[in-house]
Design a protein around this nucleic acid. Structure first.
Lengths: 333, 333
DNA sequence: GCAAGAACTGAAAACGCTTTCATCCCAAAG
DNA sequence: CTTTGGGATGAAAGCGTTTTCAGTTCTTGC
């Protein structure tokens, strides 16, 4: 007993009107006599008619779904953005096709293609790096694409971010102001634009402003994982560093716990400041000082921007920069 | 210059074959002469033809997308399941429409409806409670629905879980074995089946087995948030409890940090054991002991089960129970 | 009471694909 | 040299909507 689906045609027949009219009432088109509308609505209700979104998508060339590419849902930072994205999407009646990319260029390209095949109306991309191949795909897309919490060196893609350079510079300056001279820079792969083109620049700027020489022995390139951070302790301490700027909260938690577990007192003997202000910063002890970012809003604004783009509204500025801050908690003096 | 889309018809014309043949080669139908296939493939490549998944979905009544309802992506527990779901989905060429429900019954029903309107081939539901209205919607769905890490009192829905009752009983027994007699039970709303019908039962069972009287003053019903946990400290201590079983890791982290911040030594003066074994357990100090669950696998198996259901394969057992464990870390003696 | 326009409504053509069914072709069998 | 049958192909009918365009039916203002 296959469940029977009722179509717009059934409604039209029952209500003794044309499909066109039914379509109109379903879509809230005002050009329908109230009496007719009422009649149709009753039939719709009686038959429990539900429009088939796929057919609708084919006919109207709009699917009211947007694709979201995320490195890993399990990453609290990106998940927070995703939450903002979904809320706004829902507010504007869009649905989200979410796919994990693992920051893998090949997978990203493939995912992008299936997203486009599914005729999504727009795409939000999160990831620390935009490979040239990916950039090419972006260009070929007829659906607008906006980057959320993600940068592209060639900034021709709409995006929502904070001023990473300034934020990192300020964070590092804070460390310097506390008397630290040897400050480690811990991040993910330097291949990623966000690291080499933004965070590192901010780091260098702060050093330069303070007249401290840059020393690449203090640069630690690793994975964005807790374990990786934890394992860094010996290497970190052997450099004589007394503080570290870390590019990811989970990584930072690892660094800090690794230190603590090795009897290095944070913040007394070693200060740590992190980047993303996710809830992890409050979970660990000491609580971690961090650059603050409006996580949810980055996602939300990105999605809002996307709705405008999908709607062909003119937007004044396609690359929006949200404000950041510095939250002093207990991992710094 | 609106980007032109090339259709199956264009390919057919260029290759001098019928649409049917093009469709066959695109879908890997073996009934195509190799020479023809090659010819078509060349044209496809030259024209850069990409099948329109929406049209395909309309014609074939299969969208190769499944809906996933999640309480909140930002919740590490559910996000971990989601990751397992997405990976397996991708493996089977499905995409995921992800929507946050906030455990809000009304929203869940609504979301379910839009998912069905979008003709998803299947649905995975995560949530701590299945309301009667929701259950009704489940029944009306022509797409198979499986619950992941989520229970329904009336167990007629395919699902993937662990044996919560036994797991909690074991966890609480562990606490009892350490000499605790007053053990708090901290969880989210008791309206949720998972709490009143599973966890609490396990808790009571452990008490009963040990001949300890149940005392509802020791039951704490709150939100699944860090802050809520943290705020619990005074109430918790005033009951004279010396240990707590907590139903969620973030909540547990809050409880533990709240205790610690109030100079209550964990585990010496108070033991804490939590439920979900997410990475949060390792982040906090002391690390939290926990029931272990194969988070990723719960999602993965649920998705695998769903593929079978969508494929009309006969599955022997529609409710699968995965093994759990107990991981002793440092929040218990 | 009538013309002119506005407000409604319906017929039918897309939308881009899958799938059924009929047809055709050709190799193998007799 | 037929017959037979299976493999390869194409024509065309959907799939369930939206949307255009051409009516048709009301309202108004005179």
């Amino acid at each position: 007993m296959e469940k029977q689906t009722v179509t717009i045609y059934d409604v039209a027949r029952e209500a003794a009107v044309s499909m066109a009219t039914v379509s109109r009432v379903v879509n809230g088109n005002p050009n329908v006599k109230p009496a007719t509308r009422k009649k149709v609505l009753e039939v719709i209700d009686r038959l429990d008619y539900r429009p088939n979104a796929v057919a609708r998508g084919l006919a109207s060339k709009k699917t009211t779904t947007v694709g979201v590419i995320i490195p890993d849902v399990t990453n609290v930072y990106f998940a927070s953005l995703a939450r903002g994205i979904d809320d706004i999407a829902m507010m504007y009646k869009y649905n989200i096709i979410l796919t994990n990319s693992d920051e893998n260029g090949g997978k990203e390209v493939q995912v992008l293609n299936t997203l486009m095949a599914k005729q999504v109306d727009g795409i939000i991309f999160m990831g620390n790096q935009v490979t040239p191949e990916l950039r090419d795909e972006f260009k070929r897309s007829k659906a607008p694409i906006v980057l959320a919490g993600s940068v592209d060196e060639e900034q021709n893609q709409p995006s929502v971010n904070i001023d990473y350079v300034a934020a990192v510079a300020e964070a590092v300056k804070n460390l310097i102001d506390h008397g630290n001279r040897k400050i480690a820079f811990v991040s993910g792969s330097m291949d990623e634009a966000i690291n080499h083109d933004y965070r590192l620049k901010g780091y260098k700027k702060a050093l330069k402003d303070a007249g401290i020489a840059y020393d690449d022995k203090l640069i630690f390139e690793t994975d964005y994982t807790y374990k990786a951070g934890q394992a860094l302790e010996p290497a970190l301490m052997s450099t004589g560093a007394t503080a570290a700027f870390v590019g990811d909260d989970e990584l930072a938690a690892g660094v800090m716990n690794g230190l603590t577990d090795a009897q290095v007192a944070v913040p007394d003997d070693f200060e740590v400041i992190t980047s993303n202000d996710t809830k992890l910063t409050e979970l660990v002890r000491p609580k971690m000082s961090s650059i603050t970012q409006p996580l949810y809003d980055i996602g939300a604004v990105a999605m809002r921007l996307l709705t405008k783009l999908m709607n062909n509204e003119t937007v004044d500025d396609k690359t929006v920069i949200l404000p950041y801050g510095l939250m002093k908690r207990s991992s710094t003096k």
